[in-house]
């Protein structure tokens, strides 16, 4: 009698192949997600470094750096944090003559990877100035401190610059504006946003993300993170709602946006980096952005 050879049947082979195919199909998207997860944690780490730099700046100077102000001198937090992110050489070469151009132009063109979130596509603005992804919190309405704006009253954030006249501050005026100290954050640094993400302008000459240029170094919380509600800019505004970057003309107000799915990284005053959902209760988001309003905030 013929002895049957020991072997797999066709069906068994097919089943094994099917199972392997299914496993691969499950795994491949996971690999792509792992890439984005890696970029996202790099993004978060950069923001953490900036939080440490801010605290080191405060320890050294006793006050928070200028975040954002009305003129176009280039004196934003991007300049003042340089010595605290190991870029003191660039800082020492800076000419404090209040000019954005001249010898300062080349210094601005040095890319600073710590100011960039790898999840976003790196873009340069017109004069080869790299765009960046982090912005400091100014308050609840817009750069000009309009109150009320969309029925929301102005309340100052940690990087609002203050002077007697209110409104846009010109840095290079005889009466230099002043910034806040940590002890002014009476809402508590754990409940106050210092920094969040912004996106680089996706198309040519969209100025969003030009954080070195003082008027665009900050964001406000009038609208929520990654909102369909537009950013407001007087110039270089390219309305791209399909890319998640809507924009209309008007008095400057940038909002927090990121390329991460579901939310934005946000640096709190105590140095913690939290991932804040797009679905956050809007009054909570606005309450987190103020330093002295005494809101009672729920979970966020």
């Amino acid at each position: 009698m013929l002895q049957r050879r020991k072997a797999f049947t066709l069906i068994e082979l097919l089943v094994v192949i099917a199972i392997i195919a299914v496993l691969i199909a499950l795994l491949l998207p996971a690999v792509q997600q792992a890439r984005e997860a890696a970029r996202r944690s790099q993004c978060k780490n950069n923001m953490k470094q900036l939080g440490l730099a801010l605290h080191n700046y405060h320890d050294t100077m006793g006050i928070l750096p200028y975040g954002c102000h009305g003129d176009q001198s280039g004196h934003s937090w991007c300049l003042y944090l340089l010595p605290f992110i190991d870029q003191a050489n660039v800082y020492n070469k800076w000419n404090f003559n209040c000019s954005y151009y001249g010898t300062n132009q080349a210094l601005r063109q040095v890319p600073q990877p710590v100011y960039t979130c790898p999840s976003d596509t790196p873009t340069q603005w017109w004069d080869n100035n790299p765009l960046y992804n982090y912005a400091v919190c100014l308050g609840t309405t817009n750069n000009a401190k309009s109150s009320p704006l969309n029925s929301v009253n102005w309340a100052a954030g940690a990087f609002d610059v203050v002077d007697a006249s209110g409104g846009l501050i010109q840095f290079c005026t005889p009466a230099a504006p002043k910034t806040y100290r940590l002890r002014d954050v009476s809402d508590g640094t754990s409940n106050t946003i210092f920094m969040s993400e912004v996106r680089q302008g996706p198309v040519n000459q969209d100025i969003r993300g030009l954080a070195w240029y003082a008027p665009f170094a900050g964001f406000t919380t009038n609208i929520g993170p990654n909102s369909a509600s537009p950013d407001v800019m007087g110039n270089f505004c390219n309305n791209q709602p399909s890319m998640g970057m809507p924009c209309v003309g008007g008095a400057t107000a940038l909002s927090s946006r990121s390329k991460h799915v579901g939310g934005v990284h946000t640096l709190m005053g105590d140095g913690a980096v939290r991932f804040i959902s797009n679905n956050i209760n809007l009054p909570t988001w606005q309450g987190l952005s103020t330093i002295q309003n005494g809101e009672v905030l729920g979970e966020f």
Partner: peptide
């Protein structure tokens, strides 16, 4: 309204 989970939004 307060006390409810309300997200804001808007459009161009």
């Amino acid at each position: 309204e307060g006390g409810k989970h309300l997200v804001g939004s808007g459009a161009v």
